[in-house]
């Protein structure tokens, strides 16, 4: 059974259709990239999966359960199984790195435990282990706003990993980073899939990055799925289709 199966997904804002009839499946352990011009609906697609955005119609089967019909409690449980990484990291800037990482455990805690910040020794050890793994353990007690972009994104990855997720959604994780940090982050994401077997869906706007990292690529254009295949299948013709223009134009841009 596929880990994630999306069927006939539609979403519009007022009269503006953002996603039209999206169908695709994602297998466990896959590294999937979603490409497309800005405004194509990549972020909206990702946000429908963990219901930060409510879809209009369709089905999103995650682990065989339809996410779109879950009640509040079970939605919370499923969200804990899905990590998310953002373009702007979305940390709480005034809090320390370790505090931000532990936020990833809230999905498993009662409201009061969360509000009073009660974490087990195991959870704290795990947080430090992850910081160590991502090479930022020395910054554990620094405030997040004192870190560089690349370091903040690594904190974001730790926060997602401590959830013990089956799936991680990454919305343009490297769009605000310099080339070096971008490579570091992409390498970490790739190793998450390969070493931990966690499935990753990554929104990207750099085609070459998508081609060199992913198993499979999905192309969106104006809310339509126009490409779905292994990365080597994505040739200039397909790229032109995704970006809605001549490839030669794309290269000179």
């Amino acid at each position: 059974m596929a880990l994630l199966e999306i069927r006939g997904l539609n979403k519009s804002y007022q009269d503006h259709r953002v996603l039209t009839n999206i169908d695709f499946t994602v297998e466990t352990g896959e590294f999937l990239s979603v490409i497309g011009p800005s405004g194509a609906g990549k972020s909206t697609l990702l946000r429908c999966i963990n219901r930060l955005v409510e879809a209009d119609s369709g089905e999103i089967l995650f682990n065989g359960e339809n996410i779109l019909t879950l009640g509040r409690k079970s939605l919370r449980k499923e969200r804990a199984n899905i990590g998310m990484i953002f373009q702007h990291y979305n940390l709480v800037p005034r809090l320390t790195v370790i505090e931000n990482v532990l936020h990833g455990r809230f999905g498993y805690k009662s409201t009061l435990q969360g509000m009073f910040g009660i974490f087990s020794e195991e959870e704290k050890e795990r947080a430090f282990y992850l910081l160590e793994k991502l090479g930022i353990a020395e910054h554990a007690y620094k405030r997040c706003d004192q870190l560089s972009g690349g370091q903040q994104q690594r904190v974001g990855i730790c926060r997602a990993l401590i959830q013990d997720p089956k799936l991680i959604l990454c919305d343009e994780p490297i769009a605000s980073l310099d080339p070096h940090s971008s490579k570091v982050i992409m390498d970490y994401l790739k190793s998450i899939t390969e070493e931990m077997g966690i499935t990753c869906i990554v929104n990207l706007h750099q085609v070459e990055v998508a081609q060199s990292y992913s198993h499979r690529i999905i192309g969106l254009n104006k809310g339509h799925l126009v490409f779905n295949g292994p990365n080597r299948q994505l040739d200039t013709h397909h790229i032109g289709e995704v970006y809605g223009m001549d490839t030669r134009e794309l290269i000179t841009v």
Binding site: L52, R76, R79, G83, M84, H103, F106, G107, M115
Partner: peptide, 12 residues
């Protein structure tokens, strides 16, 4: 949004 996505409750 980030905390909501982890499954945190509103009050958390």
């Amino acid at each position: 949004e980030a905390l909501t996505a982890t499954g945190a409750t509103y009050f958390q």
